[in-house]
């Protein structure tokens, strides 16, 4: 069976390493390189980025030779909801207080699951928010307001 490039595990891994290595290398060009005796801030990063690119080339080449498929399916939907729930929580915490932020966190992250039962999520969010209040605010004394009017 022919494995497509975008489904080729090692080829993609190599590509990722080369990409990150290249970005790091070009960014590090702005930092003085120095010499082995007096290393500048650019020395270590540039050497590391170079090594990462070499590894990337090797892994990618190996992938082209012996193509292996990525196992299982990609969970993009779950990844998106979980990531967004974290981002939105952070953004809201600065603005509206703990409780509304957590409510949004629960509803958005629960969408990442296979089943979304609104009643269950409401109960889960209520119980866990009470728990969070008990642990973080009451127990640990973290200085967060609960709502935006506090």
């Amino acid at each position: 069976m022919k494995v497509q490039l975008w489904d080729n595990k090692d080829f993609l891994a190599g590509l990722l390493m080369i990409g990150i290595g290249a970005i790091a290398f070009f960014m590090a060009l702005d930092y003085p390189f120095g010499s082995a005796l007096r290393m500048g801030p650019g020395y270590f990063p540039r050497v590391l980025a170079g090594i990462l690119i070499v590894f990337g080339v090797y892994v990618g080449w190996r992938g082209l030779r012996a193509a292996e498929q990525v196992e299982g399916v990609w969970g993009w939907k779950a990844l998106a909801f979980i990531t967004v729930s974290l981002w939105v929580f952070g953004w809201l915490m600065d603005r509206v207080g703990l409780i509304p932020s957590l409510v949004v966190l629960f509803f958005v992250s629960a969408l990442a699951g296979h089943e979304f039962k609104i009643k269950e999520v409401i109960i889960l969010a209520t119980v866990m928010i009470l728990f969070a209040w008990a642990v973080f605010i009451y127990g640990l004394g973290l200085p967060y307001r609960l709502f935006w009017w506090d």
Binding site: I82, G90, L105, F106, S109, A112, E120, L124, M128
Partner: peptide, 13 residues
Amino acid sequence: RWLFPSIIMFCAV
């Protein structure tokens, strides 16, 4: 489906 949002909550806070 009850566990993972709770784990996310702990991680977030």
